[in-house]
Structure formats: C-alpha cells, structure tokens
Design a protein around this nucleic acid. Structure first.
Lengths: 207, 207
DNA sequence: CTCCTAACCTAACGATGAGTAGGTAGGTAT
DNA sequence: ATACCTACCTACTCATCGTTAGGTTAGGAG
C-alpha cells in the first residue's frame, strides 16, 4: 500500500478512530498497539509520537466520548416540558450518538469492572459523568420515592439501572443495526421511564 | 507456606473457586494462570492436570454459573401466582445467588462483548440461557405489546434490558454489600416489572 | 516396610506485546 | 537547489504469559 505522509493532526485523528474501533472490538488488553497502528496506516512507534502510552490513549478516548454523552444529557434533560418528554428526547439523543459512533457504547462501558489499572480510569471518567447527570434526576418531583435508605445508595442504583439498560441496548444494537432507533428508544423508555413515573407517582414495588 | 497434598477433587474445587475470583477481578485476559494457581495453593502446571487450557477452564466456570442461574428462573418464574409476584421472587432468588457467589455476577457478564475468542464462549453459553428464559416471558399475557416489529428483535431487547439491569446491579452490589438485598431487588423490580406490567396493560411509550 | 500411583514441582519454550533507539526520507521554506 | 523539520520506519529490548517436558515425593495399598 502506498504510504502517504499526513499532517500530525490528521494522523492523530486516524489513530484515535482506529483505537476506538480496536478497543471496542477487543477490549483494552486485547487491543494491541500494532493493530491500532495498522488500521491507521502507520507503524506502531508513530502512535507514541501522539500518545505517551497505551493507557493514556485509552483514557483520552474515554474522556472524549464521555464528554460528548454528558453533553447529550445536559442539552436534553432540563427544560419546561413534562419529564417523560424530556427523558425521551435525551434517551433518543443518546442512541443517536451511539448510532453515529458505533464504537462509543462498547468502548465506554465494557471494561468498567476490568482489572484495577483499567478500572481506575473508568471509575474516574465515568464517575464525573454520573456526578453530573444524576442531580438532573434527583430534581424530578417524586424522585425521592425511588430512593431507599441510605439515600445515596438508592440514587446510585438508579444510575446503575439507567446505565445498565443504555449500555446493554447500545451494545446489542451495534450488532443489530437493522432495528430502527425509535424501537430501541421505546424499549429503553418502556423499561426506564414508565417505571420511574409510576414509582414517583407512589406505586413503589415491594416484595 | 506448608504445601499440603490434597485429593484431585478437592484441589480442583480450590482451583475453580480461585479462577472464579481471579477472572471476576481481572477479566479473562487479565487473569493469569499463575495467579489462579497461587491462590489455589499450587504451581501453574497443576491447573493443567485438571483443565486442558485457560479457555476451557473459563468455559467450565461460565457453564456452571449459568446453569445455576437458569435453574433459578426455572424454579421461580412459572406458577399460578400473579406475574409480578413470580417475577419478584425470581429476581430475589437471582440476587440471592449473586450474594452467595460474589464472583458469579461479575464473571458472567463482564466479558460478554470482549474479543472474539472469549465472546464466542459467552455467546454460546449465555445464548442457551436466553433461549430457555425468554419463552417464560413471551407467555405472559400482554407480552406481545412489548414486542415491536420485527418480533424477534423486540423479544430479544426485553432480554437485553433484563440482563442489563440485573448485571449492572449485581456488579454494583458486589462493591456495596452493605445495601440489603431487598433494596436491590426493589430497585430492579421498580425498573423492570412495573414498566412491563404497565406496558402489557396497554400503556406503551412513544416518542 | 516397600512399591507405585498420582499430586506436585522446577525449568524451560515460544509467542506476543508495550515501549525505545536511532536512522531515513518526504515535504516545505528560503 | 539546498537545508531542515518532522512524519515515519526498521530493528531491537524486556517483560509477561500460556503451555509443555520431565523429574520428585507424599502417602495409601499390599
């Protein structure tokens, strides 16, 4: 193949795109620098001209995608409309991002409980996301009913459920792109918001 | 440390327990045979007296835990009681298993989208679980409302959501054992069943 | 007490992969 | 045309890890 000499910025973007792919497909440990470099059209040492280490490259990608998704919540969740409508458009926008960046969903959530090294990066980056998004929920009327004692744990569990559903569907959807987005969004909302609304209206489940 | 000579069966169980721990903590690639052997009180080659390869050891653990969880659904989901009650006790039993086997939840779901080698094992083993559990849901009255077109995709998405919620909560709970099980179960049910019930009663969400 | 099975070990092999050293050559500015 | 910067390369080092070969010893059977 004819090697082309590109500007540093252009090559860096190619490397980031390639790394998103490779990490999404193979995980942090399974994704090799050589493979990332190959798909970006260069040899492995070039990666180190742009990133100091594999871990830092990974962290950079995580931060980029998490920042984009945080923005989705910030842009869509607040507003004067009914809560269900706002939540619906936020979830829709979330999956729109996942559609546009097929590797983002897989990249962001897969390794979240992996070995200490990677896990620390995830908790740091994902924690920031959680801390920003969850207050938006806590302000919804009736939200306190979702929260048992201790309150923090209850709120965090809401986040865990939200994350679990969006993560699971995003990963699944990446393998079934023929399903239209509206259907994925509707499935998520049927599970998440309808339950939330009902509970915040007083109908808590008990064993 | 004083090395004790144990029967093959006893040592094998120690190795399985150790491997569950290590894979849960570090993932498939991150968990090394040496570390597994060390925690089982032996040197690495002894592992190969019991399992032909790392992959087969991993598969064995997966099959064991998935079989146990399948049994939980089989035992708890069918019955004459109202659907919500049956679902509630199944979810409760599921988390009881997760409580008793702290590594099961993390082990079973973490690597589900990892590199092809591991992924194939997961899809094979988890697929069997899904194929057995989902029909139990499809039979619930009103379930067809959860299912858009194509029907298979809709049913599978229900499974994905269910799995996402249980997985997320199980992993989170493993790090927060002070939260009582009832609260975890209630959170799961609030998200899952209340939404399900409401939808099967005709209240489908639409954007 | 004496075998002999099998549970266990040390020492290596081969592969893979992160990261580095040091040089080469394409483009651009003068 | 020449000189220089820098994008890029080849060729390595070093560490880790799965797996195997082959030997050693505990401990029960006779």
């Amino acid at each position: 193949m004819a090697r082309k000499r590109l500007s540093a910025d252009t090559r860096r973007e190619l490397i980031e795109a390639s790394a998103s792919e490779v990490f999404a497909e193979r995980g942090y440990r399974g994704g090799s620098i050589v493979e990332i470099a190959r798909r970006a059209g260069v040899s492995a040492p070039v990666v180190y001209d742009h990133f100091p280490s594999k871990a830092e490259l990974y962290r950079h990608l995580l931060e980029r995608h998490f920042a984009a998704l945080r923005q989705v919540w910030r842009d869509n969740l607040p507003g004067p409309e009914p809560a269900g409508e706002r939540m619906g458009r936020a979830v829709d926008a979330w999956f729109a991002y996942a559609e546009e960046h097929p590797f983002a969903g897989r990249l962001l959530f897969r390794e979240s409980v992996a070995d200490p090294e990677v896990r620390a990066i995830h908790e740091e980056v994902a924690g920031a996301s959680r801390d920003e998004v969850m207050p938006l929920f806590a302000d919804e009327p009736g939200a306190e009913r979702l929260i048992g004692a201790p309150a923090d744990a209850g709120l965090e569990m809401v986040w865990v459920v939200l994350r679990g559903v969006l993560q699971g569907l995003a990963i699944w959807w990446a393998d079934h792109p023929e399903v239209p987005r509206e259907q994925v969004v509707a499935t998520a909302m049927n599970s998440l918001w309808i339950g939330f609304e009902r509970v915040s209206g007083g109908e808590t489940y008990s064993l």
